[in-house]
Amino acid sequence: MKTEANAPSKANSRQKNGNHPSGDNRFTMLETSMKKLRYQPDALIEVLHSAQGLFGYLTSDLLLFVAHALKLPPSRVYGVATFYHFFTLEPRGLHSCSVCMGTACYVKGAGSVLAAVEGATGIKDGMTTPDGNLTISTARCLGACGIAPAVVYDGEVAGRQSPEDALEKLNEWEVKNGPE
């Protein structure tokens, strides 16, 4: 038997808008952007975009802060945050490798590039290596079909990638080989 998530700390759950007890300035910035959206509950997705932009990922604490500010049930906020691919509840790796799996890239061999990266690291699409060095993800068409297959390394698009090219990049980042 197991349970799935950590309980958010109760100390923070009763906070009034703003002034997060942690003193973290980013909460004030989030507060400002929520104010701009007039704390409208229907602005939840915009607010989550801002929150992730500020903090990198969405912790339970942060989701609860947003839920209280927008007067939304916590489960609703959690439901929305986990519905959309863009939001992440886990910290991302230092480096990122995003393989485009659009149709054009796929027919030109993106699948084997992804397989090579997954094979070398022992992690799957959407996961981060245990040492926090690399996150692997896939994208659905970057619009770079002309240079397929495309891979985005740390935000930089590289075209016409082979499995070898990708592995070379991982070496450069000193990504450790994972279990096969």
Binding site: P41, I45, F83, F86
Partner: peptide, 25 residues
């Protein structure tokens, strides 16, 4: 309104749910 990565939101009713800040179902 900026989407957050859900293909199904191209469907009209899901798109509207998403604009309203909900799950794009």
């Amino acid at each position: 309104r900026i989407g957050a990565g859900a293909f199904v939101c191209g469907e009209e009713t899901a798109l509207m749910a998403s604009i309203e800040g909900k799950r794009g179902a």
